[in-house]
Amino acid sequence: MASNPGQISPLRGITRHITGHNDSGRAVIHSSTPGQWDALEEAGMAFNVVYTSQFPADLNNDADIETHETLKQSGKLGLVNPGGTVCRIVDFAPNNQAVMHRTQSLDYGVVLEGQVEMILEDSEPVIMQRGDVAVQRATMHGWRNPSETEWARCLFVLQDCQRLTVAGKEMGEDLGVAAGLVNPSGNDQK
């Protein structure tokens, strides 16, 4: 059963290990904490924001850790971190509802458990297996777990990107039916 706060899936809980340096400059574990999950049960998903950072990251005096904690506590983080990155793990319920959306970002999606169907506007859906990677380039897309019985898990790394224009149209963020469920990123307003 789910072992981390807010986790709705029966998949193994996760622990985030942050590294750092001791006073002599040697590598050490800064902290190890259980994942914190935000359930979007209407869509059959749970999000765990592993880490956020500005780009390039400032690691001096643990500035990145403070920036991450401040952003998480603000409650204003959208799917994308303007001027930065987001590392997020998403658990998908069996036969979950695919939420079509577009982020203004370059994303890497890696299937960690199960299978995930990548749905695009004008292509046949692609079933991704464990270890498969999607490079999502600011397209309208959705993710669905096609299994009737097993949960699936993906790791996503989202990077803010410059405004994208295709055929004369700006392709900004579009949260679709997720509007109101997740915060807008605001990175298409720059």
Rank of each mutant, 00 (worst) to 15 (best):
R130Q: 15
M45C: 07
A98L: 06
N81K: 08
A43D: 08
G75M: 06
T67G: 05
R88V: 13
P56R: 09
E66T: 13
D122I: 15
L79K: 04
I89D: 01
D107C: 09
V86N: 02
M140N: 10
G109N: 03
A98Q: 03
Q115S: 02
T52S: 11
V90T: 10
S53Y: 13
G78V: 07
E69L: 15
V126M: 11
F55C: 13
D91V: 06
M100N: 02
G84P: 03
P82Q: 09
G75H: 12
D122V: 14
R137E: 01
I89P: 03
H141C: 01
N60Q: 10
R137T: 07
A43C: 08
T52L: 11
Q54L: 13
P56T: 09
F47T: 08
L71D: 00
N96K: 12
D62H: 14
D132K: 00
Q129S: 13
F55G: 08
N61V: 04
G84E: 03
Y108T: 14
A57D: 07
M100H: 05
I65Y: 04
V126I: 13
Y108N: 10
E113R: 13
Y108E: 09
Q136L: 08
P56Q: 08
A63V: 05
P125E: 12
S105P: 01
S105I: 02
P125M: 14
L40I: 12
I89A: 01
D91P: 00
G75Y: 05
G78S: 07
V126P: 00
E121W: 08
L59K: 08
T139G: 02
N81D: 00
G109C: 13
E113P: 10
D91S: 04
E66I: 13
N61T: 10
R88K: 14
R102N: 02
D58W: 09
H141P: 00
I119G: 02
A39D: 09
V126A: 12
N96F: 15
Y51K: 11
R102F: 05
E121N: 12
N96M: 14
D122A: 14
I89R: 00
V80C: 09
L112N: 03
N95S: 14
N95A: 15
M128H: 05
K76V: 03
R137H: 04
K72I: 15
F92L: 15
A98H: 07
E69R: 15
N96A: 12
L59A: 09
Q115C: 04
T85Q: 12
A134T: 12
A93E: 08
N48T: 05
R137D: 01
G84F: 11
V133D: 08
A39L: 05
